[in-house]
Amino acid sequence: MSIDVDAAADHLRSQWDRLDRWLRGLGGELGRAVDRPSVLDGWSIGELVSHLGRVMEALARCGPVAPGTVPLSFAEYLGTYPDRAEEIAEATRTLDAEIAPDRLGGVEDRAAQAFARLDALAGERVVQARRGPITLQDMVVSRVVELVVHADDLSRSFPEIHDDPVDPRALDAVAAELLHVVVVRGGWSLEVHDPMLWVRLATGRERYDVDQLAKALTPVHTSEAVPDLGRMLPLL
C-alpha cells in the first residue's frame, strides 16, 4: 500500500464527513427517493444508503488476532467480494428494513462505532475482519474504497444534485490503491490520469473499453502503451 494507516484514517474521516453532510443536505428529497432504483443494478437508493452502515460496521467489528497470524493481502481481500455478492445484498436488505425509520441515524451510529473501534485498535498491525485477517492499514483503505465508490453511486443516482459527495483527496488515494493492485499483478509502469474514470472502470461502474482505459491511465514511459486490462477488470 502506498499510504499508511494514519493517512488512510484521515481519508476515511474526510470522505465520511463529506458524504454524511451531502446526505443530510438532501433533506426530504432523500426520503422521497428511497424506493427509487439507484444506479447500482438491483439496489434501491434506500438500500444503497443503508449499505454505508454495513460498510462502516465491518470496521466496527474488527478485533485483534493471535500473534503470528498471516493477513490477506489487499488484493486478496478485494477478491472475496464477488463470491459474496448475494450475501452482501441480502444482509444490506435486512439492515435497510431494520433502520428504515431513521436510515441516516442508523448509518451515522455505525460510523461512530467504526471510528471508535479504529481508535481502540491503534497499534495493532493485523486485525480480524469479516472475510479474514487483514492488516489494519488495508482494512481502513478498503473502507475508503467503499465510501468513495458508493458516494459516486449515490451522486449518479441523484443527477439533479450538483454538489459532489466524493472527497477529491480520498478519490486520488483510492485510484492509486486500485492501480497498485493492477501494477503488482502485471508489472506495468502506469499512472492515473482521470481518477474517477479509473475508479469506475476498476470497480465495474463503467463498462470496460480500451479507449476509456486510455483516458483513465497513462504509461509512465512514453515509448509504452496502456495494456489491455479486460481480463483483469473489474477488480471488485
Rank of each mutant, 00 (worst) to 15 (best):
P37Q: 02
G42M: 00
S44C: 02
V34F: 04
P37I: 00
R54G: 13
V49E: 09
E57V: 06
E76R: 09
V34Y: 00
Y77P: 15
L26W: 07
S73N: 05
L23T: 00
E47V: 06
C62L: 15
T69V: 09
I45Y: 04
D35R: 13
G68S: 11
P67Q: 10
G46T: 14
G46S: 15
S73L: 03
L72V: 12
E57H: 10
S38N: 02
L59T: 04
G28N: 15
A66H: 15
L52E: 12
S50R: 10
R32I: 07
P71Y: 02
P82T: 01
V70P: 02
E29R: 14
E29W: 10
G42I: 00
E47Y: 09
A60K: 07
R61M: 14
Y81V: 11
A75I: 02
G53Q: 06
V39D: 00
L59I: 06
T69R: 06
R61Q: 15
L48P: 04
V65K: 07
G79M: 09
A58M: 13
P71F: 02
L40G: 05
G27S: 03
A66D: 15
G25N: 02
R32K: 14
C62I: 13
R84P: 04
E76V: 05
R84H: 14
R24Y: 11
Y81H: 09
S50F: 13
W43I: 01
V34K: 00
R36V: 00
F74I: 00
G63T: 13
V55R: 04
S38A: 01
Y77V: 11
L72K: 14
G42N: 02
R21H: 11
V49T: 09
D41E: 15
D83N: 11
L59F: 03
G79H: 08
T80S: 10
P37V: 01
D35P: 07
R84M: 10
L48M: 12
W43K: 04
L48S: 15
L59N: 03
M56H: 12
M56G: 10
G53R: 05
G28F: 13
A85F: 07
V34W: 02
A58P: 06
F74Q: 00
G63K: 13
A66Q: 15
T80H: 14
L52S: 10
S38W: 05
L52D: 15
L26N: 03
W22P: 01
T69N: 06
H51M: 10
T69Y: 12
G53N: 08
S50M: 09
Y77T: 12
R54C: 03
S50L: 08
L52C: 12
G68V: 10
W22Y: 03
R21Q: 11
S73I: 06
S50H: 15
P64L: 04
E76H: 08
A58K: 12
